[in-house]
Design a protein around this nucleic acid. Structure first.
Lengths: 147, 147
DNA sequence: TCCTGGTTTGGTGTCTGTCTAAATTTTCCC
DNA sequence: GGGAAAATTTAGACAGACACCAAACCAGGA
């Protein structure tokens, strides 16, 4: 997954993927539907499309699992969320607010922009809502920082 | 217009309004269409809706003018753009990049969030792409700064 | 007055996200 | 093993945003 842009999935689908990624094992439709307060059929439809794009494996009636491609993408989504939240917290928002507001705006941030902000923050290890995982190709200018 | 949320207009419509606001006099459909590279009929349709919402006055075949309500809203849009651009420039983006990227993400920022960032930046007078106009009710915690 | 270019209308299409109702599959209990 | 209940999917519909094209329409200049 070299060329992540950050716009591969629509914002709702990205949220679903992130949620699935953050669960431990196979995730059921109902669980997702409950979490996002939407009808199960809405989830099924989204899941089908996310699967078609290769980010998850959907076994009808049995739930979904994230593929390796999906894992990579979800990691980006989580990192983006945390970077955005961190930026907001640096602008006067309390940790929880920052996290909440980040959810509303993160989908607009491209990978490039995320990386730029990451770099300018000095590739921080922690955000206001969890750790930030960097990998070797996380940011263009990132060269083996890591602690 | 007390309760601006920042989501009153869809993002395209907000862009149109901002553009109209920034022109001197009456703006013609063709001009907008050319500026945004869309068909004139697309613009007419949007204009009708923006007018219905009270932000502009649309005289068919003769162009549009911003109403006072529209002016107030457009000022917010411009301020938001500049605050967002300024934040980005504080995170390593060059002025022009910051302005360009801001255009892509600004529509996600609520008025509240904009105001919070404005406050945390110290109600700056200048952004990377122009002056930032503050007014008495611009930010919740803004109390007569103004230079 | 008439032509022409600018503009609007009306009809379509796509994408995203949502729902309901009906059909289907799985699960689990007797 | 049979069936009912629960979970899930399918099918069809709708709404909002945005875009286009073709056709009708207006306004102003020659």
């Amino acid at each position: 997954m070299q060329g992540i842009t950050g716009q591969e999935l629509s914002s709702k689908k990205a949220e679903y993927l992130k949620y699935i990624h953050m669960q431990d094992d196979v995730v059921k439709t109902t669980e997702i539907a409950a979490h996002f307060s939407v009808a199960p059929s809405t989830v099924t439809k989204a899941l089908t499309e996310i699967a078609k794009a290769g980010y998850i494996e959907h076994t009808p009636y049995h739930g979904v699992r994230v593929t390796s491609r999906g894992t990579e993408y979800a990691r980006f989504l989580v990192r983006r969320h945390r970077i955005v939240a961190l930026v907001l917290s640096r602008h006067g928002l309390e940790p929880e607010e920052a996290c909440r507001e980040a959810k509303k705006i993160e989908q607009c941030f491209s990978k490039d922009l995320t990386d730029r902000m990451c770099t300018s923050l000095g590739h921080p290890m922690m955000s206001v809502c969890g750790e930030i995982e960097h990998d070797h190709r996380c940011c263009g200018s990132f060269g083996g920082y890591r602690g």
